[in-house]
Write a protein that binds this DNA or RNA. Structure first.
Lengths: 152, 152
DNA sequence: CCATCATGTAACATATAAAGTTGCATGAAA
DNA sequence: TTTCATGCAACTTTATATGTTACATGATGG
């Protein structure tokens, strides 16, 4: 399966925006992420609907942060993306008539459920502000070497 | 992403075989699983290479179990499949130059790593024999209703 | 009012990986 | 030597994330 990197992508966008106040166009963000503006709008749509960011059209328009970064967790962002499936593996058949399959599903579902719960729990423990703090640390040590955030 | 059901599938096959001694052709197993014989051979190849099952050609040939079901865990089976990726999500870019991306990756990798470790650990706790026991329980209660393993 | 800018969205194209299918080679048994 | 079964390569199909194009919508500045 192709790995889903939307969560990674949207966090990257949010963290970039958190680095300085103001509005950012999809094109600006897309360039920083080396992707297409439409992709930015796509992954941001859910966040807008939930009020974490705002978007405005026309001159001077673009995206702005509209939430308390200390309150929004990775889990909130994940939910805003529509809670895409976390696991690459699944049951061959859901609700099978075959008892053998039922036994297999029961065993796997147990493990899958635990892993999903753990992931969501971890996501819930990390706020965007924490990511920003970590980033500032990285920026600090990098600045000592005279390099920028995107530096080679 | 399309969900990988090979682990589910191969466990189904093994559990079917464990229900009665003897050899099973790929075609027989494929019919029970409602799939193609080549798919069976494909998902069984790794298990054969590791000695968990044997395959023989020609008249009377087919697949036979060749392991102690109390010793082989779901993790062993997973490994035999080639340890396919467990998570549906991943980082947008591995080893990025962008510090923002590095911060995002660090946070996600933590959660992803924990979830993977938990899954592997759970897999390691469940043997094929345990699956068989669970299946027998299910068969028992179903028999009281006059139904077979595949019965609708 | 209108030209410009930016988002919103649909539609289409591409990439990747699992699952299914076909064809044939290999080898064992009757 | 015919039949049966696996081994395997190559191809098709399907699903999904990602990328791209085109155009509608609406806001701003002239």
């Amino acid at each position: 399966m192709k790995r889903d990197s939307r969560l990674s992508g949207v966090l990257h966008v949010l963290l970039h925006m958190a680095q300085q106040p103001g509005t950012f166009t999809s094109e600006t963000l897309a360039k920083a992420m080396d992707t297409n503006p439409v992709v930015i709008r796509r992954i941001m749509a859910g966040l807008r609907d939930l009020g974490y960011v705002r978007s405005e059209k026309g001159h001077g328009g673009g995206w702005t942060l509209a939430c308390d970064l200390t309150k929004v967790t990775l889990r909130d962002v994940y939910t805003a993306l529509g809670s895409p499936s976390l696991l690459a593996m699944g049951n061959r058949t859901e609700a099978p008539g075959c008892l053998v399959e039922q036994a297999v599903n029961a065993a796997l579902d147990q493990a899958f459920g635990d892993a999903q719960a753990l992931l969501l729990s971890r996501f819930g423990e990390v706020t965007l502000a924490m990511l920003g703090d970590d980033l500032r640390k990285r920026l600090g040590s990098r600045k000592l070497q005279g390099m920028s955030a995107h530096g080679a």
